[in-house]
Design a protein around this nucleic acid. Structure first.
Length: 674
RNA sequence: CGGGGUGUAGCGCAGUCAGGGUAGCGCGCAUGGUUUGGGACCAUGAGGUCGGCGGUUCGAAUCCGCCCACCCCGACCA
């Protein structure tokens, strides 16, 4: 039997038996290979599994095995569901292969992003994944990225790295193009794989080491120009998330290793999110916990008293100390030791606050910050548990501004089992740096309006930065202004991780049964689910319906398997295809097909006649657009630009609709209409 | 990098502590049959470097040593 026969069937044998196709006739002459016609064959024998055209898909041929149980390594919901739905496979820690279903979703997300970047004036290009380490040293970010940078040497001992981001390269490209202010502003973007050797990949696709990302770099003449580009991007990002059907909030953020002064993150609200966001329901202030500020309550002033020692045997923690002395934690001073770039740092903060390490790191302008080891603490002459800000010599000291908001604190005495009463700043001790290094707290006052802050969890799905000029200056990206003066280009940087967005969408939208895709990024629109019986009519109608829907431009996953209803329904739910159409003898009796939205419980019967038109109305697509899709479409959203608007309103969570205040106001953002 | 955990069939697990016969179970997979509206049933069957290397022993999934991979917490991190 020629091997080529398998091209038109599951196996050569089954195909040949059912078709009686003579083996000496070339397989490409087989009508079934090009027409996909299968109707009228006896039920039960029809095992023909073929794709009739680009993009059409029968479940039996799909490169997917769904799993009933999630692999043990997955413990976040999105990771479990991605694995169970057969969307990704892990290749190494934080390194994944994206299988067909995931790849379709990623391409849709990518296409939405591409359209919005283009609409905002961006120009797409491709940059290398490989970069010389020199440009990182030139920009001064080599140290900031540290071990996160994947580095190696080539055969000529040149040092290379895998690009974790592309500001340096982009600045280099721009510097050779931009000569005059007339060449600005400029928005360049690319969508490609980036590499970061994260200390700990985790959460499936939420934090990985190799990932596809859209990065746009803006180039402007000055701060004002940067502001305009930045606002354009904020709007473009909002459009992207809206079109993906994902409610996000904009929050102020720390710029981290990327650098720059102003920065915002887009957060998808999800209880499982690893980021905490503080927000003010009254004025709309919202910030990542790393960045968030709050008004620290000042304690009632007392007359400063003189210092006295108090014996506190075995009392080492603030909690114990407060209990032991019968005072609130706010009347104590906490001492914490860090090692910042190999220097021990003594940090003092009022007992009721916690240190915000991001703020501390920024205050110290340090690249690496970690808690000091016991050995390091001892070497610095400090007594852990009883360390005192008084009489610290030879090491850098940082104080949170909360230490000035009270009097007569209890602090360590720097000898075992002893504390000091009535310690006052700055009367009794000084610090090298006094600034805000505290974590904001729920219930503290909003720094803008004084209302109480609340907190919510989210997943970072986008991050934008106002970089300013530090990279352009170091990489020589200058232009001539109107007066002929040489000036550095103002840069901005705007990133969205595609895989993380996909995973975040699952975190946000799923139930016990599986994923619930928003229509615009769903791998398929429709799950066509015939329940086969002895009645060949079901199969005939199913094939016919499939052909009609495909022709009308719907993306249909046709479950042609002869599985039991339970298996099919469970797979449909697991994969999360937005619309399920069930065809059975039951519905056929009424000349109808059953429609069920994945996001809803109830089902409804649709008449078979005029089905395409009915679905178009339901989905909000137009036949014209659907039919006009290019043959080699990235089957993205270009033909569905209307439907995403329609669908977004459906998918916004109640929480979101009721609390539209998270959106940054007055920044080109308006409240979401409910 | 610190702490904890796990590696046995595609997936989930038992067996390991208390060393001995052919390494088991569920799901999935294959074949045949009966089934078909929420993960059906019967029968038969295939599938394993027990993470790797070394050691102890007549004999190691099991005991000892080293290493590796993966996961979780922390550190860290667009």
């Amino acid at each position: 039997m020629p091997a080529t026969f398998s091209s038109c069937g599951t196996s050569a044998s089954s195909s040949c038996r059912t078709s009686s196709w003579p083996w000496w006739v070339p397989w490409w002459s087989c009508p079934r290979w090009w027409s996909g016609w299968t109707a009228g064959l006896p039920a039960g024998q029809n095992r023909v599994r073929i794709a009739r055209g680009i993009g059409e898909m029968r479940f039996s041929r799909l490169f997917v095995k769904t799993l009933r149980q999630a692999p043990a390594e997955a413990d976040t919901v999105s990771h479990q569901l991605l694995l169970r739905a057969g969307m990704v496979q892990q290749v190494a820690a934080g390194v994944y292969a994206y299988l067909p279903l995931a790849w379709r979703v990623l391409r849709k997300i990518e296409q939405i992003i591409r359209e919005e970047m283009d609409r905002a004036g961006g120009q797409e290009l491709m940059m290398p994944g490989l970069q010389p380490v020199e440009i990182w040293e030139q920009s001064g970010r080599r140290d900031a990225f540290g071990k996160t940078l994947f580095t190696f040497t080539d055969r000529r001992d040149r040092r290379l790295c895998l690009g974790p981001t592309h500001e340096e390269v982009a600045a280099g490209l721009a510097s050779r193009y931009v000569q005059s202010y007339r060449d600005l502003p400029l928005l360049l973007y690319h969508i490609q794989t980036k590499f970061r050797d994260e200390p700990r990949p985790r959460g499936g696709l939420l934090r990985v080491r190799e990932f596809d990302m859209k990065d746009l770099y803006s180039f402007d003449v000055d701060e004002a120009g940067l502001d305009v580009s930045y606002k354009k991007m904020l709007q473009a990002y909002k459009n992207v998330y809206d079109r993906c059907g994902l409610p996000t909030v904009v929050v102020e953020a720390d710029s981290g290793a990327i650098g720059g002064k102003e920065s915002h993150e887009f957060m998808l609200i999800a209880d499982s999110g690893e980021d905490e966001v503080f927000h003010c329901p009254a004025c709309g202030y919202a910030a990542n916990a790393e960045k968030a500020e709050s008004v620290k309550p000042r304690l009632e002033a007392e007359e400063p008293a003189s210092i006295e020692e108090v014996a506190t045997p075995g009392i080492k923690t603030i909690e114990d100390l407060a209990n032991f002395l019968g005072i609130p934690p706010s009347r104590t001073l906490k001492a914490v030791f860090y090692t910042a770039d190999d220097q021990v740092v003594f940090v003092t903060i009022r007992g009721d606050f916690e240190v915000n390490e991001t703020k501390l790191k920024n205050a110290l302008k340090a690249h690496e910050l970690r808690l000091a080891s016991d050995a390091e603490v001892a070497r610095a002459g400090l007594v852990a548990g009883y360390a005192s800000p008084l009489g610290v010599h030879g090491i850098k000291t940082v104080g949170d501004d909360s230490i000035a908001l009270g009097t007569n604190f209890v602090a360590g005495a720097n000898k075992p089992d002893t504390h000091l009463r009535n310690v006052n700043y700055p009367r009794d001790f000084g610090v090298d740096i006094l600034t805000d290094i505290a974590l904001a707290r729920v219930g503290d006052a909003c720094p803008r309006c004084g209302e109480r802050l609340q907190s919510i969890r989210g997943i970072e799905v986008g991050h934008v930065f106002k970089l300013g000029t530090f990279i352009s200056e170091r990489l020589g990206a200058y232009y001539l202004d109107k007066d002929g003066a040489t000036r550095p280009i103002f840069m901005g940087s705007y990133g969205i991780g595609l895989g993380r967005l996909m995973a975040a969408a699952i975190e946000h939208s799923h139930d016990e049964q599986g994923i619930i895709w928003p229509l615009p990024i769903a791998p398929y629109h429709i799950y066509l689910c015939p329940l086969y019986t002895d009645d060949p009519e079901i199969e005939r109608v199913a094939e016919d319906t499939y052909a009609q829907l495909e022709k009308a431009g719907f993306e249909v996953l046709f479950d042609d398997r002869r599985e039991s209803p339970g298996v099919k329904f469970n797979d449909a739910d697991l994969l999360g295809i937005p619309i399920r159409l069930t065809l059975s003898s039951r519905t056929l009796k009424q000349q109808s097909i059953e429609l069920k939205w994945r996001s809803k419980k109830e089902t409804e019967l649709l008449p078979l006649s005029g089905l395409v038109e009915t679905l178009k109305k339901l989905v909000g697509g137009s036949s014209e657009k659907a039919n006009n899709r290019p043959q080699n479409r990235p089957r993205g959203l270009q033909s569905w630009q209307d439907c995403d608007i329609f669908y977004c309103k459906e998918t916004y969570s109640e929480k979101w609709v009721k609390n539209p205040t998270f959106l940054l106001q007055g920044d080109g953002f308006s409240r979401m209409e409910a």
